[in-house]
Amino acid sequence: MATEKKKTSQVVKYNKWGYIFLIPFVVVYLIFQMIPLISTIYNSFFENYMSGLKQIGPTWVGLQNYITIFQNGDVPKYFGNTMVMWIAGFIPQIVLSLLLAAWFADTRLRVKASGFFKTVIYMPNLIMASAFAMLFFTLFSETGPINSLLIQMGMIDTPYKFLSHVVSARSLVAFMNCLMWFGNTTILLMAGMMGIDNALFEAAQVDGATSTQVFFRITLPLLRPILLFVMITSLIGGLQMFDVPQILTNGEGTPMRQSMTMIMYLNKHLFSKNYGMAGAMSVFLFIITGILSLIVFKFSTSESND
């Protein structure tokens, strides 16, 4: 009895260290994440901006900022731009990644040098997005090498202004996003495919299934949870799209703000100290990403309970 009691108090004595070790995280999180979040939400209800050198507000306006950013078409437009560029990059990205992951994981195909290929396709993910965008800007500029190449090959007569046309500007952003992320997605999907019981593939082989049938009837359905995870995390990442279009278009979202993303808009308001609008935009983004992360969260916790 006595020893047991002593043991419990010992354990309790140890367990207080759980709280002690959590102090740095909790303190830093509260100061640099929680307070800013509350302050952002609070600021979204105030009219607060610079008109020339004159400070307007802060005045309590309730939901007026939210109504404004939706009614003047800013949020719908930039949300639309962001989604179009995300989808245009994500579709080729997921198709390529599925294909590559299936090949890498296929024991019969035995792709040689797969380590080399994985290293190469993952590399763009680590490159500084702003430097990569600057590189693409110079390469695709009017006097840049891509235009010179196209002219030397006789495909065009005058330099093509990639950033002056909606389709080419958005395609460049989508292409860069795809290039930067398909390696990452491939590795995630491959990890998922490795987790599938090999006996299923063997059984399918014995039954005479073709590799296409195996892919669509076995691999894809079993991969669905990971595909969902990849899609939603990529969507959350897509909503934060900033560096690439910001540097590529010098923050202007050329042409005619058709490649302007939501975070670029937020960034603009933060720099011009239009805090009311910036706050409303932030809260809108917070709600969307919150809902999406909740789905990911539900999904990953339910999986661990299995």
């Binding site: 934060q240 990403t289 909740l294």
Partner: peptide
């Protein structure tokens, strides 16, 4: 509770708190 909280906020992007962050 703390573990669940950390997992739940894992996906929240830093950009949405940027306004409060620079004010702070």
């Amino acid at each position: 509770a703390i573990f669940t909280f950390i997992l739940a906020v894992m996906m929240i992007p830093t950009q949405v708190t940027a306004l409060g962050f620079i004010k702070l």
